Simulated scan of single mutants.
Amino acid sequence: MLVLDWWFFAVAGPAVVFAGISKGGFGSGAAFAAASMLALVVEPGLALGVMLPLLMLIDLSTLRPYWGKWGLREAMLLILGGLPGVVLGALLYRVASPDLFRLLIGGVSIGFVIWQVSLARGWIAVGRKPMSDRVGLVAGVASGFTSFISHAGGPPSAVFLLGRGLDKTRFQATTVLVFWIINIAKFVPYAYLGMFTLETAKANLVLAPFALLGAWLGVRAHAAVPERLFFGITYVALTLTGIKLIWDGLT
C-alpha cells in the first residue's frame, strides 16, 4: 500500500529531482536510483509504477531542447533492440531475478569504464574501432529489459553510445529519444501488471513539478558543462551506478 505522508514526499521529492537532472543533462545513467530510493518507503512494484509516468514527463519535457541532435543510427539500433527487450521484460517480470541482471549490468558498466580509462592512460594499446551495430542491438535488448524490471536501462545504452564516440550533445539527445520510446512501450504492460493505482496517480500529480524542475536543471547543466567534464561526469555516474547495481544485487 502506498501511503502519501510527509516521509514519502521527503524521500520522493529529491529522488525525482535527481532523476530529472540525470535524464535531462547526463544521459540518464543514474536516474534509475530514484526508483531505488522510493523503494525505501514503498513496495518496489509501486515504486516502479510511481516513477514511470514521471520519467515519461521528463522525457517529454527534454525532447524539444535536444530535438534532431541525436545520432539517428545509434538511436534506431537501441530502439530496435529495446522494444523486444521490453516485451521480454514483461513476459519474464514475474519469474526473472532482477538481482542477477543488476549484477551483470553493474559488472559490465564498471568493466567498460576500466577499459576506457586504460585506453586513455595508455595502459593497453589496441585499435579503437567504434562498437558495431550488432553491439547496439544487444545493448538495446539489455536496456529495454532492465528498464522494464528496474528502470535501469541507462548503463547498457551508455556503454554502447560511449563506445561509438558521440559528442556530448549527440550522446544526450540519443538517450532522450531512445528512452522516450522505451518508456512509452512500458506503459501498457505496467498497467496490466497492476503497477498503477489511484495512490500512484495522486503521487504523480504532486511530484510532477519536481520532475519538471529536475529536467530544467539538467538541460541547463548540460549546456554549461564542458565536453571533457561531461564525459568525466558520465564515467563517474556509470561507475557509481554499476557499484549500486552490484550492491543491490548482492544484498
Rank of each mutant, 00 (worst) to 15 (best):
A139L: 08
F101R: 00
E227S: 14
P84Q: 05
G194S: 12
F231Q: 05
V159W: 04
L205F: 04
I124F: 15
V135T: 15
R128D: 13
D248E: 13
F8D: 10
L119T: 04
L212Q: 02
R94S: 03
F8P: 08
K202M: 15
A90L: 07
A201P: 08
L229D: 03
P44H: 05
I114V: 06
P189G: 11
L213D: 11
G89N: 04
Y192G: 08
S36R: 07
A224P: 03
R220E: 12
F18L: 12
Y190I: 09
P226H: 05
L78R: 14
S28P: 05
I181W: 06
G140V: 08
L205D: 02
T169K: 12
A191P: 08
I182E: 07
R220H: 11
L77P: 07
S36P: 12
V138K: 07
V95T: 05
G89A: 09
L78A: 14
S118F: 08
S97D: 11
L91K: 10
D133S: 15
F171V: 15
G71P: 13
L91C: 12
V108E: 09
V42C: 09
G49L: 06
I182Q: 06
G249R: 11
I181N: 07
L4D: 13
V176K: 04
S97H: 06
P98Y: 01
K244G: 05
P155E: 02
V108Q: 07
G144N: 04
L100Y: 09
F32E: 01
A152N: 03
L198V: 10
V225M: 00
N204D: 05
F26I: 05
L177Y: 15
P156Y: 01
V126P: 14
G71R: 15
D99Y: 03
Y235S: 03
A39P: 06
V50M: 08
F148W: 02
F112K: 09
G144R: 04
W7A: 14
V138P: 06
G107C: 11
I114D: 03
T234F: 03
G163K: 02
L60A: 13
S22G: 09
R128Y: 09
F8Y: 10
A120K: 11
L229G: 04
T174A: 14
L72E: 14
F101Y: 02
F101E: 00
P44I: 06
M195G: 02
A223V: 10
T200C: 00
V95F: 01
V236N: 00
A125L: 15
L198F: 11
I124L: 12
T239N: 03
A142V: 11
W180S: 09
S36W: 07
I105H: 00
V17A: 05
A30P: 00
V42M: 13
G25E: 03
R94Q: 06
V159L: 12
A139I: 10
D133E: 15
L240Q: 06
I181M: 09
S36T: 14
I58C: 02
R170K: 14
